[in-house]
Design a protein around this nucleic acid. Structure first.
Lengths: 150, 150
DNA sequence: TCGCTTTGGTAGCATGTTGCAACCATCGCC
DNA sequence: GGCGATGGTTGCAACATGCTACCAAAGCGA
């Protein structure tokens, strides 16, 4: 039942992505994973989510190939959850959500957590959607083509 | 109860974004809005979601300032739902999710809907996260700073 | 090696949310 | 004015979620 799709327009990559992630908790788990969380307890304390929910979400993410369950790095018998390459590829998604939140839900001087470049410690550039030729494009410059193979 | 936050780490912009959007259905509504849907029935047919659910999602999105309810453009007495500037700013989020889906959930020759540049009809560039100085950065090049004001 | 704490879960149950189907008011149109 | 389409609302059953309690295994100090 992990893989039962909730969204039937599954030729749309957005719908498949949404279905693969599962729910918002899962996305916040991924965010925490980017932030360095690896252990069950770390995710649980950071998110404040119920443990049974966290259990199922971690399992879903592992089943979906976003996280992998590996032996703990400190040599203990516990396991850790780390991002797979597929999970790391969610980086732009998280960054986009973060930037949207920064721009629309915080007063200019309101403190909030920040994602910064390790080198220099500066904020990141705002994501830009670009056409093949490098032009910046917005929603009105694009259109969706249905199901043609590339 | 629309605004009751489910995620308490609300100094994180990702959590606020996630909370503001509401749920996955809402994100697919936004996707369809980018794709040109405006009417209740369009969203309903496209998504296959129950009408009461769609009603509450549309209300939530309007209340959150992502969509606006405006008089129908065809002169009829019905209303339409259109993206606000805040809603349009979700464009990179949708594009990021779409690209992630394209890269990880479709065989290379598997047909799927495509987002293309109107001029020329080509695919878009893959989103790149860049530091202030223009370097491409990945998850491992960044770190989260807690709640310092900018 | 004994006992206590931490970790990583399960199990059961109350509550909230979702999906489905039926119903209904208004609109558009002839 | 009548009839189908549109855009909902309502009630209810099913499912998902969250809370709390419980539990087994691992760590760890003495």
């Amino acid at each position: 039942m992990v893989s039962r799709t909730r969204f039937d327009d599954s030729d749309c990559p957005v719908a498949r992505s949404v279905d693969a992630i599962g729910d918002w908790w899962s996305l916040l788990i991924v965010r925490d994973a980017f932030d360095g969380s690896r252990r069950f307890g770390e995710f649980q304390r950071s998110l404040g989510v119920a443990k049974n929910i966290l259990t199922t979400r971690l399992r879903t993410l592992v089943a979906g190939g976003v996280l992998a369950s590996v032996p703990a790095s400190d040599g203990s018998a516990y396991r850790e959850y780390v991002l797979t390459p597929k999970g790391e590829a969610l980086f732009p998604v998280i960054v986009a959500l973060r930037q949207w939140g920064e721009q629309h839900f915080f007063a200019p001087d309101e403190p909030h957590s920040e994602l910064v470049d390790r080198r220099g410690g500066h904020r990141l550039r705002v994501l830009e959607v670009r056409a093949e030729d490098g032009r910046r494009v917005g929603p009105e410059d694009t259109t969706v083509q249905k199901a043609s193979e590339g």
